[in-house]
Amino acid sequence: MNTLEQLEEEAIYIIREVVGQFNNPALLFSGGKDSIILLHLCKKAFLPGRIPFPLLHVDTGHNFPETIKLRDELVEKYQVKLHVGSVQESIDQGKVIEEKGKYASRNTLQTVTLLESIEELKFDACMGGARRDEEKARAKERIFSVRDDFGQWNEKLQRPELFDMLNGQIHSGENVRVFPISNWTELDVWEYIRKENLEIPSIYFSHKRAVFVRDGQLMPSSDFIFNEKEETFIESVRFRTVGDMSCTAAVPSEAIDLDTVIDEIRDSAISERGARMDDKRSEGAMEERKKVGYF
């Protein structure tokens, strides 16, 4: 078996464990490349049957329109049920307060909506496309990661996880986050997309876009991002991660297809999440968000 085959075997084994061990699992789907891969793996895991669980998308309302379009096409293609948790609704209901100022982002707010959706729909396991090579706090996470009644991750009390034996036993009210592609790197993800010929949002490839420079990063010009003074210009860019528009920076790129994207990543001197403003808010930004229930 080559590396991609090994990784695929491992991921599908984990996905089948989720269905074997939990009553009401779901797949957290953002429309980004990692969740698209996960959806494809879920399809493979249950052929010739259908995917036996729904998708949950936490919609910040600040998405790239390309992502939402592809999301709806995929839902149709794979014949899965889609639940959408809306951050805008949480704001309208006064459950969260919109951040203000130059760095305002809905990234943190989505945790509240995510936890509410999990509680309302009574999900006991939520699969996500997080990978250990993305970020130093994620490098510590188990494949089956137990969250308490408040959705919190306790980094000091993670369960031991041995061999391929996954312990999904929980008390009522708790839930488990499951990461089937934990051991994939960014390059593995791209090579798998190429091998399986998967469709991904067009913003992952080079395109001309109005951007402005903030803190050394290229931010997309958009109604969602407060910008008074910074000068906007047109540049050939692509996105390496697809998050909320307000916290995802673009990178200059001429990579127009999978081959050129893969070459570019191989040569890149900046890490994948180097263009995520949400990680740069403080030293433990990811860890602090995980502790309160962030995906």
Partner: peptide
């Protein structure tokens, strides 16, 4: 610092 990723570890 490349691997000790938790705040309490640092």
């Amino acid at each position: 610092l490349a691997t000790d990723g938790l705040l309490t570890e640092r």
